[in-house]
Simulated scan of single mutants.
Amino acid sequence: MKTKAAAWAGLATIGLSLGLAACDRAGGRSDAPPSASAPAEAWAGKDVVLYLPDPVMKKRVEVSVLSPYVQAAGTAAEGAVRAAPVQPGASGMLLLMVKPGGRARAWVVTGEPAPSPETVAAVVKAVESLPAPAVREGPILVGIGFDAWGGGPPPAGASPPIPRDWYGHFAKDGGLLDDAFMARVWPD
């Protein structure tokens, strides 16, 4: 049991440590473009965000299964971005929703300017081609923060971000990102 707790804490720590690495010494995120002499990195993973509460995640998926999937998704997304033509810098979140039965979908949320639709489609296709991890009792939602081509403005709206079209699935007075919401976003 201690091993599982340590593994979940490690996954959460990965997100925190990667997020801290993206901060400048003043404590804020540096939005300055890379120097003209240094080429912008095509893809830089920043953090991993668990969109559901920790007890729900622990009940639905083993970290020993989720962690390699998240790493593989980041690698697949990086490959798709590196294969695309260089574009203006973008920062955002690669969202991964996994449902029982080996089903997974991906979404890309960025600030403006966004990568080309072709690049976003290539990232989604590359990530969705991966075998989905086994989950039980309901869906999970994980995000991988990233900077592409040196990064850019963060996505507008919620933090952590969700796709703009998802806002229409909330009730007028708000709502929760729960199983019912995820079923509206991605119906069976």
Rank of each mutant, 00 (worst) to 15 (best):
R29C: 06
C23M: 15
P39E: 12
L94N: 07
G45D: 11
L176P: 01
A44M: 09
A106E: 05
P187H: 08
G89M: 00
A38H: 07
G89P: 00
A76C: 08
A5M: 05
T13Q: 08
P100C: 14
T119H: 09
P133I: 02
I144F: 00
V135I: 10
L141W: 12
L141N: 09
K125R: 15
L141P: 06
L11D: 10
A126R: 10
A7I: 04
L176A: 12
F146D: 11
E41N: 01
D179Q: 11
S116H: 02
K99F: 14
R60A: 11
V70T: 04
V56W: 03
V135F: 14
A121H: 05
S91G: 01
V70N: 06
P161K: 03
S17G: 07
P113H: 04
A36I: 04
A6K: 13
Y167C: 02
P113G: 10
L94K: 09
V49D: 11
A9V: 05
R103V: 11
A183C: 06
P153S: 14
V61I: 12
A84F: 03
V127I: 02
P131N: 05
V108E: 11
Y69H: 15
Y167I: 00
A104D: 10
L66Y: 04
R164F: 12
M182D: 05
G143S: 10
P155D: 13
G175R: 01
E112L: 11
V61E: 14
A7T: 07
W186E: 15
V123I: 14
R29Y: 13
A80P: 08
F181Q: 14
T110G: 06
R103P: 02
M182A: 08
A12L: 15
R103D: 11
D188Y: 06
P33S: 14
M97D: 08
G102F: 09
F181V: 12
S64P: 01
S116W: 02
P88F: 06
D54Q: 13
A44P: 02
R25W: 05
A26Q: 10
V63M: 08
S91D: 04
A6I: 10
A183G: 06
V98N: 08
F170G: 01
A77Q: 09
G74W: 08
